[in-house]
Design a protein around this nucleic acid. Structure first.
Lengths: 343, 343
DNA sequence: CACATCATCCAAAGCGTTTTGGTAACGGAA
DNA sequence: TTCCGTTACCAAAACGCTTTGGATGATGTG
């Protein structure tokens, strides 16, 4: 069923039917009703490609997910983020176009998306410190919004980020208050902007309490379960092993917990752990009592909000960029305790 | 840069330029080169919507991801599956369109996708026993491929599945051989087809060895970490608690491990655990030695293969449906051991 | 009563491609 | 020479929608 058929059926012109369906005023209320009823009855849906061609809008938003070349890892956070964004798109009538792309190909993909015109905007995932994608998108003039920020880029653009620095600063402070002096940081890849900020928060907390920053206690890798496990195993062998760990993701924290158990120690008593918790749907942080002490921020909610920001930018391109900084909750669970050795 | 501009630039007609770029024979090799060079130089990319309108093909494939209404859970497997499928699409020039949808809205979404014509085919995720979506898609005639199967549907359609039944049967056999008699099954939601098959394999193994099937030892829920934890806590309180657990996902198995530890027991010595392992990129099953004994099948690879199947179906609609049954590996790790109590 | 205004509708152009149905030039065969 | 097949190109239609620029008749106004 196409517009022409529907119009013929109703004895009206395509113009009038189109206008009736799109809410233009030049149509009598009576015919509008009649058209709506017929459209409903024959379940008419305008062809996306034709509509897009005529209007110049794709009604779709692109997500380019970078796949790390070495580990081929898909960020576990991605599913929940997409779920949040998807809600916003569904409500606004947008489709979501996904591209998973090797880092090397990214520029080409962005340029192609623009040239082929199959998206009205783009969500940038996992920005690095001085991410070339942002300059690129600003240059080609395709609306976009970033999940996170790129520290080194001063030009304004839409972003939504968790205050990673303050979150990790508070977490570190919390551990210091508990008497910990040897605190390890199991960070994500510090080429990523968020990881860089987290480290900054950690370092600043240590320095402001006159504690040494020991490179032996700092790791930066992709946040897998085995990463957490291995890092703890190795750090335990140090002359002065850490009494507390600050971990960048629940997945790695699970590996940390495993290593602690394997060593015959008890998490929260012998060794303290704080993790960042993205509030993933399949990995809730305990039920009644939080399992881990954690800095928590819902990535799903972030997806919802960022999509909203981008949609608004697209519908009003003159609008100045929106930025939003979310504060993470610091919830105290059973994985932290006073440092007895330090007493 | 549009076709018209490029043609004008070259002093050729749109027809010739279009043909040159699309590899039609009615163009001299010399001009083909010239056109290709100019297109490259000005980085011309045909507009997707216009091309789609002219050809009638969307060059896009839809993935409809159901969001479970109660828990709002996003299956953690989803990211890696999509990554695999994305590779196949990128290679074949297809885009991937994603819709996350509440179960109730599913039918509408499928019908709309067809009517709006913005996909050439659909990948069906997480099929249930007698999934209405399959009948629906067969009815409307939109090419599709299913990740999994729907037991109750006899009509032929494209699918790719892991042999869940044999995998769980072998795993159960393995535990019985180790001397276990009280084996618990922590299954996924048994409205899902895969979970149903896993249970069938488990039951069949028990019966063929003359062991009782105890409903107290069987659970069926969404596969979260806390589900695994809670289930074990509760089953441990039984008069005759299980000595082994068969778990449907790594995530839940992690919860199982936590419960075992919390009880002061050692996994692999006091209690055995076998889990299904989808080989997720951020959750590898140990490194040198497998952490869990597991039935393993790469969901990423499944994504890649299923996408390929769908692409072939689309390019040759006459073709009979393809079906592919993958056997899972049974890798022995450190989470299983002989049942001492039984000796 | 003549004229402007308004409400309601329509024919046709346009969006950027592909594809249909040609034409012109050339070489070779009869 | 004439005719035919082939090669290399082109103008215009088509895809299904929106939007421009009227047209028509009814209504109000001076």
């Amino acid at each position: 069923m196409k517009l022409k058929d529907l119009a013929a059926l109703l004895g009206l012109s395509q113009t009038t039917v189109s206008r009736a369906l799109n809410g233009y005023p030049e149509v009598s209320e009576a015919t509008r009703q009649r058209v709506a009823a017929a459209a409903e009855k024959h379940s008419y849906r305008p062809n996306t490609r034709a509509k897009g061609l005529a209007t110049g809008r794709a009604m779709a938003i692109g997500h380019v997910i970078p796949i790390s070349a070495q580990h081929e890892m898909v960020n576990p956070v991605f599913g929940d983020f997409i779920a949040g964004a998807g809600e916003a798109y569904a409500a606004a009538g947008y489709d979501m176009l996904l591209s998973l792309v090797q880092d090397s190909q990214e520029e080409r993909v962005y340029r192609d998306m623009f040239a082929k015109g199959n998206v009205d905007g783009i969500v940038v995932h996992a920005p690095e410190m001085n991410d070339p994608r942002i300059a690129l998108l600003l240059e080609i003039g395709l609306p976009f919004a970033v999940h996170g920020r790129a520290s080194d880029i001063t030009a304004p653009y839409n972003w939504l980020d968790v205050n990673n620095k303050s979150a990790f600063q508070r977490a570190t402070d919390f551990l210091i208050d508990l008497g910990h002096r040897r605190i390890a940081l199991l960070n994500g890849l510090e080429t990523m902007d968020f990881a860089h900020r987290r480290r900054a928060g950690y370092v600043e907390a240590l320095l402001s309490r006159d504690l040494a920053v020991d490179p032996q206690l700092m790791r930066s890798e992709e946040m897998t379960e085995t990463y957490g496990y291995q890092a703890v195993r190795q750090m335990m062998k140090l002359a002065e092993p850490p009494t507390a760990y600050l971990v960048s993701s629940m997945i790695s924290a699970i590996g940390v917990r495993r290593a602690i158990h394997d060593a015959g120690l008890v998490m929260g008593r012998d060794i303290s752990v704080i993790t960042h918790d993205d509030d993933l749907s399949y990995l809730r942080n305990g039920d009644d009592v939080a399992l881990f002490t954690a800095t928590r921020s819902s990535v799903r909610d972030a997806g919802r909000q960022l999509a909203q920001i981008l949609i608004e930018q697209i519908s009003d391109p003159q609008q100045a960029p929106t930025t939003k900084l979310l504060e993470a909750d610091l919830t105290v669970g059973r994985s932290t305790g006073a440092n007895m050795a330090g007493r």
